[in-house]
């Protein structure tokens, strides 16, 4: 699948933003602290920029407002509706935290639950697509949700280190969140070997009973929307390298940084390491999200001879 930058930024930025909003909703930062106030500011910023980015890949954005109408059947529509609804508690809490030094406990829970429901809907846009077997699993939702929380935790740790002189137990929570998220992702990634699930060139053409089906001629000599959008696939050796980079930047570096920062609580080094952890984690997540698309095979490739689309 074609890795569109607008969608990569959309899912990573909103993921981290909602994760942060959820943690703040749980009351993990005292409302009198500067980091809680900035946290809300940052969460709203990440969510807004992410959502705006998602509209960049639309062919006809003037009809985007209609995307809120089909929540009965469409996960993309549900995602849109939930994103708007979630703005309400997050914005109210941002107001009370920033201007009134006050957190509203029950509203925090509402905000956290809605944030996670929004991330879940985003994940279901992909997980519900049967044609892309790699995505069509609950592990897609699990990794989106867990990455969202991990991202929020890493950011909150850095905020606490920067403005409160120490982040308490947050680095530990962040490290655990990172590890758990990457375990889910690792299981997800193992499903690469399943290919198209049950579909093959034989079932796509219904000609398997006659022998081995191969593509003799494509319907068109040049590219088209289908080959560009669904036919994109990163070469396997590049995918393996990028996966290592994603694990290194998304998990190992931030986890080690946070562990050291935990040991050196309060020092300038701890602040610096916590900030580096955020930056590397976000880079790792962008690579992870790029691979989420670039390694996914779409069933329509079977009509193009499967391997014909492999090399890009």
């Amino acid at each position: 699948m074609h890795p569109a930058y607008s969608v990569i930024f959309f899912t990573t930025l909103t993921g981290a933003g909602y994760g942060l909003a959820a943690l703040l909703g749980f009351g993990l930062a005292d409302p009198t602290m500067l980091s809680a106030k900035l946290g809300y500011f940052l969460a709203l910023g990440l969510i807004t920029v992410g959502l705006l980015s998602s509209t960049l890949h639309l062919g006809n954005p003037k009809n985007a407002i209609r995307a809120f109408s089909q929540w009965r059947s469409s996960w993309l529509s549900r995602e849109g509706v939930l994103a708007i609804v979630t703005f309400v508690p997050v914005t109210i809490l941002a107001y009370t935290n920033i201007f009134m030094d006050m957190h509203i406990g029950w509203l925090g829970w509402v905000s956290a639950v809605l944030s996670m429901m929004t991330v879940y809907s985003t994940s279901m846009i992909y997980a519900s697509i049967r044609t892309v077997n790699l995505w069509n699993t609950w592990l897609t939702s699990a990794s989106y949700l867990l990455f969202s929380n991990a991202g929020g935790a890493v950011i909150l740790t850095a905020l606490l280190a920067l403005f409160e002189g120490g982040s308490g137990d947050m680095p530990k929570i962040a490290i655990v969140a990172l590890v758990v998220a990457w375990i889910a992702k690792w299981f997800w990634n193992k499903r690469q070997s399943e290919g198209y699930g049950g579909s093959t060139m034989a079932t796509a053409t219904g000609l398997g009973h006659l022998g081995k089906v191969r593509l003799l001629e494509r319907p068109h000599a040049m590219e088209n929307y289908l080959t560009r959008e669904m036919g994109f696939r990163v070469a396997r050796k590049h995918a393996a390298k990028l996966w290592n980079i994603a694990v290194l930047m998304g998990l190992l570096v931030p986890a080690v940084m946070l562990a050291i920062a935990f040991g050196l609580q309060g020092s300038t080094t701890a602040i610096l390491l916590s900030v580096i952890a955020v930056i590397t984690h976000m880079i790792g997540m962008l690579v992870e999200r790029w691979l989420f698309f670039a390694t996914a095979k779409h069933a329509v490739s079977l009509y193009y001879g499967d391997t014909a689309l492999d090399v890009k």
Binding site: M1, H57, L58, G59, N60, P61, K62, N63, A64, R66, A67, S74, L76, I125, I129, R130, T131, V132, S199, A204, N224, Y225, L226, E229, M230, H298, A299, V300, Y303
Partner: peptide
């Protein structure tokens, strides 16, 4: 009504939709 998001084309196994 179409906003050109392409999701329907993703969901079609047969490549029957083109933006």
């Amino acid at each position: 009504k179409c906003m050109g998001c392409g999701l329907c084309a993703w969901s079609c196994a047969y490549g029957a939709r083109e933006m």
